[in-house]
């Protein structure tokens, strides 16, 4: 899908923020707790990192941007946990209002998912070994598919339909597009593909290269 999180090459953001050497890891206490709770919840609720990233993709603009990085983590964690029937829809806000105002009516705990439904418990890590040889080799020209599936993808919009050259064949890994929706791991090779800036953005502008890690499913032989 073309989600809010796919920012590469978009305009209108203004200048970047200069680095600060003394920046605290968590400027506000809730930010540390939101980060820790999210990481723990991904693991302990049987969700996975791809489902968490897909939740970020589906946030609206305000939920993604207004409270910065930690706000988008909190909002995506909520969505991920509602998807997983750990939280009921609206339950987090109801509890927060109850903490603030007292006596706010709250929905009950969500029904537990059907225990007989198929499940793909998250194996540790994302690297996998596959029997097949890589479909593409270092130095080979490849073209990315020019499509946005309706669900999750890690193929950024700015390199869709573009031609680049394989720079590194990376280890095989779990395919986020299916893993995010618990439709199987589909492990496959990942390629660091090098794109020329003028191919991506036209003749004007900087000369440079971008490498992007792309799953085998996103690529076809190109020239």
């Amino acid at each position: 899908m073309d989600g809010i999180a796919d920012l590469g090459g978009t305009s209108g953001w203004g200048p970047v923020s200069p680095p600060r050497a003394d920046e605290p890891v968590f400027p506000e206490p809730w930010q540390g707790r939101a980060t820790a709770l999210t990481i723990l919840a991904i693991r302990l609720s049987g969700r996975n990192i791809d489902a968490f990233r897909y939740a970020q993709d589906r946030l609206d603009r305000a939920a993604y941007l207004d409270q910065g990085y930690f706000g988008r983590w909190l909002n995506a964690a909520e969505l991920m946990l509602v998807d997983g029937a750990v939280l009921a829809p609206g339950e987090l806000d109801a509890r927060a209002r109850d903490l603030r105002d007292g006596h706010f009516e709250q929905p009950g705990e969500p029904a537990r998912p059907d225990p007989s439904a198929p499940a793909w418990p998250a194996a540790p890590g994302s690297l996998r070994t596959v029997d097949a040889a890589p479909a593409f080799a270092v130095g080979q020209w490849v073209r990315t598919k020019n499509s946005s599936p309706p669900g999750p993808t890690r193929l950024p919009g700015y390199v869709r339909g573009q031609v680049g050259v394989v720079e590194v064949v990376q280890p095989a890994a779990v395919f986020p597009d299916t893993n995010a929706q618990f439709q199987g791991e589909n492990p496959q090779y990942v390629y660091s593909v090098r794109f020329d800036s003028h191919e991506l953005w036209g003749e004007h502008g900087d000369s440079f290269a971008v490498t992007v890690e792309l799953f085998e499913n996103y690529l076809e032989a190109g020239s």
Binding site: W30, L74, D93, L99
Partner: peptide, 8 residues
Amino acid sequence: AALRTAAL
């Protein structure tokens, strides 16, 4: 966000 985090 702080309150929502406490709720979570």
